[in-house]
């Protein structure tokens, strides 16, 4: 790559990376809002989150197209190649996380408790703790990506086990509550699906961390 071409290429790749980090920040905010909706059951906020999901899709497509253009025009190698590949793969993970956030919001608000019916405070407390860990994992994976920091990426893996533990507890609670409140079985199933969605967000944050390790160290890692 000649120095002239290289300058244009590196300017483009820097711009792409900035856009990509901005998408990550947008989705991080959406996950926080979805986790708030789990607690509040705010239908209006949930509708807004679902309505604006297209913004994530559009940004994801723009970034993917830009990656394809860079691959076709510059055939990057070494760290530049790993960066473009990392962006393509994590771009998809981030878009899927946004989908989970929208689905979380929709389910959390769809049949939140009418005032007379119990709304399972024990489960919601479990989810508050679980949400904090999931948000911490996602935030750290994005920080690791933004700073291309493999050590930070390694740090999030142990949280994944804790998130799985919360999901298992949520499962047991739901199984116990259904016979006690058969009229609210649908709500309880939805509540369990929230745990599944939160767990999937954590899994995808783990995938992002694995890609950061590949980007920095050049080694394909699977946790």
């Amino acid at each position: 790559m000649s120095p002239g071409v290289s300058y244009t290429f590196h300017r483009q790749i820097d711009k792409l990376f900035q856009e990509f980090i901005a998408l990550g920040a947008m989705v991080e905010e959406r996950v926080r809002r979805a986790c708030d909706i789990i607690q509040s059951g705010d239908m209006e906020a949930a509708r807004e989150l679902v309505r604006t999901d297209y913004q994530v899709d559009e940004a994801e497509i723009d970034i993917e197209e830009e990656c394809l253009k860079i691959l076709a025009l510059y055939q990057p190698v070494a760290r530049d190649l790993r960066l473009v590949i990392t962006i393509i793969k994590t771009n998809n993970e981030i878009e899927r996380i946004a989908d989970y956030a929208a689905s979380l919001a929709q389910r959390a608000a769809s049949d939140a408790s009418p005032s007379s019916a119990p709304d399972f405070p024990e489960l919601l407390a479990e989810y508050r703790e679980m949400s904090d860990k999931v948000i911490a994992m996602f935030t750290r994976s994005l920080d690791a990506l933004a700073h291309q920091d493999a050590d930070l990426a390694h740090e999030i893996f142990h949280l994944d086990d804790q998130v799985d533990h919360h999901r298992n507890r949520a499962y047991r609670t739901v199984i116990e509550e259904i016979p006690r409140h058969p009229e609210r079985a649908e709500r309880l199933v939805n509540l369990y699906i929230l745990a599944r969605h939160l767990e999937r967000i954590a899994d995808r944050a783990t995938n992002i961390a694995e890609e950061v390790i590949y980007l920095v160290e050049g080694e394909i890692t699977r946790i």
Partner: peptide, 10 residues
């Protein structure tokens, strides 16, 4: 090597 093949000099 990385600098050269990624076009950061040369």
């Amino acid at each position: 090597t990385e600098n050269y093949i990624t076009g950061r000099f040369g």
